[in-house]
Design a protein around this nucleic acid. Structure first.
Lengths: 237, 237
DNA sequence: GAGTGGTCTAGACCACGGT
DNA sequence: CCGTGGTCTAGACCACTCG
């Protein structure tokens, strides 16, 4: 009657999932506590905890001490988006990867960029633009600013063979980053690089990387038209 | 010497994180096994396991039985993107939410849509377009197809007051979904709804929801210009 | 205050997969 | 084979928070 007597926390997770899906435990309702479920499933409480924690992390349950565990009213679709190194992204599609540096200058960034990289007004930063190719076709146009206070060693790099992204990953430790995904009209530069009309809608991924309190680099990656960021939600395990 | 003697798996996680960041354990290197670390930190192996598992789920460690635990060569930036219900997204920005249904028809979907919803050629599906407003300003233009084989009850709904998204969430169980994020030029319809020029780049989120093997609905959400999907990576806890 | 989830422990067995 | 991570157990204490 109580279903799912097999071993493993995944079995319990799946049974809970089934009850949610079957509306045995409708959205918003309180489900039995861990001790009761452990008894019902004939396992240790820690095993139930493991299963419920997984579902809570997936956004399907809401747990609070004393208040108990509830089925989420609005199961927030939490989707993992992997932001891979571009070389990897290309080779995983079975295409050959190519890189072409377009420019490299040491100039004061525009004020909005300076502010986000915490660079003093008028101070210079390293500006690099480049093209990432998939099977010799333009794939991504990259515009990058590097904070030389945080990464002085970057000043010695030409980034002609190795992309700034890969050099930074290998040489500069980072702690976290902010990502913004937007749709932008292709700038003249990006349009020239990607061989398209200026103004064409492009999927842009902007990344600001940090080493603790210090900004490292601000990168804008404009993907060739038609590119999609795909992911999936649900299917907890 | 060995750092971090405080209690809690988070303490261990942070110490491991520190060693990775400090290059004590450089990318690609093998780190001590769980038993050794447990001894070093003076805790149970399960606690070490909890900490390392968290880091592995974040993409910073790669673990394999017998092979041990290695620091990831390319710390895949795994970013969680929450795809919220639009009402929630709007109210969380401190704005008032509004909804306006634009159209509702029962027609055969175009072949690409029919294929994805597994609808027989020529068979009809429910087509709904709507506008989501934030403080009376257009926020998202929605184009949706609903598979009536999977959700026959939808045929009785007008979706004039309650958005299809919310009605479906409340009445139709789902198991998972596929998401694609792209940049698209505004269609004439979307442009009219959002009060912008056709062709303007829009961030589009397309969701195909499933109940096990059966497709439920295909929704295209075109966000008003300037909208950004923001997220963050790193900062494991 | 008391009930709930969050976590830790010490020990055990198992599944996987290099060697 | 046999070392490694994956998991389970039974019990315990703690932290939070609702009533």
């Amino acid at each position: 009657m109580s279903g799912a007597r097999g071993h493993g926390w995944q079995t319990i997770r799946d049974e809970v999932l089934r009850r949610i899906h079957a509306r045995d435990w409708p959205p918003g309702s309180l489900i039995p506590n861990e001790a009761d479920l452990a008894q019902e499933f004939g396992c240790a409480r820690a095993t139930v905890n493991r299963a419920l924690r997984a579902l809570a992390e997936a956004g399907l349950l809401e747990r609070r001490r004393k208040a108990g565990t509830r089925v989420a009213l609005l199961p927030v679709s939490r989707a993992m988006v992997d932001i891979p190194v571009i070389r990897q992204e290309v080779t995983e599609r079975g295409q050959s990867y190519g890189y072409r540096r377009l420019s490299r200058t040491l100039v004061p960034p525009p004020p909005p960029v300076a502010a986000r990289l915490q660079i003093a007004p008028g101070a210079r930063a390293l500006h690099v633009t480049a093209l990432h190719l998939a099977d010799t076709r333009p794939f991504v146009h990259e515009t990058r600013w590097i904070n030389l206070d945080t990464v002085p060693a970057a000043a010695a790099q030409g980034f002609e063979q190795v992309s700034a992204n890969e050099w930074l990953l290998a040489h500069v430790p980072y702690t976290h980053g902010d990502i913004a995904i937007t749709a932008e009209p292709a700038s003249d530069e990006a349009a020239a690089g990607l061989d398209i009309m200026p103004g064409t809608p492009l999927l842009m991924i902007e990344r600001l990387s940090w080493d603790g309190p210090r900004p490292i680099t601000l990168a804008r990656l404009c993907h060739a038209p038609g590119h999609a960021l795909v992911t999936r939600f649900g299917e907890t395990g």
